[in-house]
Write a protein that binds this DNA or RNA. Structure first.
Length: 114
DNA sequence: AGCTTGACTTTGA
DNA sequence: GTCAAAGCCAAGC
């Protein structure tokens, strides 16, 4: 199935993309928003992630802001869970920031061939 | 129906 | 390099 299903809720579309993020890679809210077709609604992506707690299998820790900063870490169960998960996947995090973010960045549109 | 809020991004000074 | 302001659109109240 793909994300072209217009019947899917906004949240579901976001979740679908986040689920596709490979291990050890990260992406930004804006990139996901752009993949959804609404580049300017990056804030909605973050908000959708807020509902990601209700579902499992959503690697929300792989979604950071444009600067590679773990802006959403405080929304995790223990806030340090986000950083820990990233590190366990081989992503270096220092001061709430992803190192080599530019290399680890995973663009949904580019990787999915959109 | 209207107003506020938000895990953001871009632009301009 | 920093900081402030505006734009964005869905959900909640």
């Amino acid at each position: 199935m793909n994300l072209n299903e217009r019947h899917a809720d906004f949240f579901e579309r976001v979740f679908d993309i986040v689920r596709l993020i490979p291990e050890g890679r990260v992406t930004s809210y804006g990139a996901i928003a752009k993949a959804l077709g609404t580049p300017s609604s990056s804030r909605m992506v973050g908000w959708a992630m807020n509902a990601s707690h209700t579902q499992s299998g959503i690697p929300a820790h792989r979604v950071v802001n444009r600067n590679g900063l773990l802006t959403g870490k405080m929304h995790f169960n223990p806030p340090e869970e986000m950083e820990n998960r990233l590190k366990s996947e081989g992503v270096d995090v220092v001061k709430d920031k992803v190192i080599k973010f530019n290399e680890l960045f995973w663009d949904p549109m580019q990787e999915l061939g959109w």
